[in-house]
């Protein structure tokens, strides 16, 4: 477990305004001192420097911050970090690494299922959840299930193709 005062990037002095929480992220426990107002998204990024999870709108409208909480996809910007003690949180950093890609990540590379890459973590976290959800086999169904994740570059066709590759539906 990490030391709660070990964040070298935080200018915030530990004080009574902060909450002590333990968050389970990607299988590891992190003892943290956090602002009670902090969203899970800002906590992941600003406190833990887990910057693979992106902020696109901060209002639950774009899906760039999608993570899994207890196996279900959630917008981390709409979750308060402090209420997720005891929950299993999975972020893109827990899915695969550049040297060991998850098959879904490899499919995104092969299909060019991105352009700028900024929404990509969220797309992959949603797609990873979709694999376990009761989504029908067709491209249209995948499109509906993925429509909470905006890609302004418009790489939608390739994203659906990558997901269908992994589902064996292409």
């Amino acid at each position: 477990m990490s030391d709660p005062t070990s964040n070298p990037f935080s200018a915030v002095e530990p004080n009574s305004d902060l909450l002590s929480v333990v968050l389970r992220i990607n299988g590891a426990s992190h003892a943290l001192q956090i602002d009670p107002r902090a969203t899970l998204l800002d906590c992941l990024r600003d406190t833990l420097q887990l910057t693979g999870t992106k902020k696109g709108c901060d209002h639950g409208q774009c899906g760039a911050c999608t993570v899994h909480i207890n196996g279900r996809r959630r917008n981390a910007c709409l979750a308060l970090a402090a209420v997720h003690e005891g929950d299993e949180i999975l972020t893109i950093e827990g899915v695969g690494t550049p040297d060991r890609l998850h098959p879904l990540q490899a499919a995104f590379v092969a299909r060019d299922a991105y352009q700028c890459g900024y929404c990509t973590s969220g797309q992959i976290m949603s797609a990873l959840a979709l694999l376990q959800e009761p989504c029908g086999p067709g491209d249209d169904e995948v499109r509906e299930y993925m429509s909470g994740n905006l890609c302004r570059c418009g790489a939608y066709a390739n994203i659906v193709a990558a997901i269908q590759d992994v589902r064996g539906q292409s």
Partner: peptide, 26 residues
């Protein structure tokens, strides 16, 4: 040709401007 930076983008390892943190940063 698949992107040479693809593995960084699909793992969240690609660092965008807002992903940088510095000691004492405000």
């Amino acid at each position: 040709h698949p992107r040479v930076d693809g593995a960084l983008k699909v793992t969240g390892a690609a660092r965008y401007a807002g992903d940088h943190y510095l000691p004492g940063m405000l």
